[in-house]
Design a protein around this nucleic acid. Structure first.
Lengths: 122, 122
DNA sequence: ACAAGTACTTACCCTAAAGTATGTATTATG
DNA sequence: CATAATACATACTTTAGGGTAAGTACTTGT
């Protein structure tokens, strides 16, 4: 799991940003290229690990797992493993994870308006 | 200005993420530790460059300018320079930049709930 | 003549995060 | 007996972006 240097300036500044800005707090949790996409896929229901992998083909397994673990550690998703062979593991949004959907939707709204050029007036 | 390798896998994947996910589109524009903070400060009205610098003391000038230029290039903020000496430059949110405020607020809402532990009930 | 203030610019370094490649355990199936 | 499938793990490399430090142009104040 990602080795992070404790005392780098970059970490200190992150702390500052976290305290100053709730938005940064959210970014910490859903930042990175893939996390929002994972959350989006999970918003339509439970998904198996392999389903996610197939749904987002260009993501590598290392990064997918890494993000899933982080999302789980942050309490945004819940992992359920059935003790069978071959393994059967599903992921779903937690209560907090579901709480992020309005954020996701607000972002999507803005993105679509932006892409449509609806902000180009003035 | 940031030199970006044209053909890296990381850039190709970014493209993929951008197409698949409007959220990533937004992240492209307001990602990075400082951009949301800058937008937040500008949400209360025009600010001079030096005001921003003083308001966010730990940010370095290089990074502040860099972000301001990117935000301007992305059409989120508007730069106004009066031809006087010493220079007098102000930044303000554009129409599109103002459109981001609901996103910022949705994020802030979630962050405060999360920090309050209001998501901890299952 | 020299420092101070504004709004930058530039060259170089370091770190976090993404990517590459390969390996693991377990069981069913041909 | 070897292969396939699932859900990971791990060692190593590369890249984007943030940080450090110093410099620039122009004018006013002392």
């Amino acid at each position: 799991m990602a080795t992070i240097k404790e005392n780098s300036t970059i970490q200190e500044n992150k702390q500052y940003a976290l305290q100053q800005c709730p938005v940064t707090h959210v970014m910490e949790k859903i930042g990175g290229y893939w996390k929002p996409i994972i959350i989006y896929y999970l918003s339509t229901g439970d998904k198996r690990y392999s389903e996610l992998k197939r749904a987002i083909p260009v993501i590598t397994e290392k990064v997918l797992i890494q993000h899933l673990k982080q999302l789980e550690a942050d309490g945004l998703i819940i992992r359920e493993a059935r003790p069978v062979v071959p393994p059967y593991v599903t992921y779903k949004l937690s209560y907090a994870g579901n709480g992020l959907l309005p954020v996701i939707h607000a972002m999507a709204d803005w993105a679509f308006k932006d892409l449509d050029g609806r902000f180009n007036q003035v």
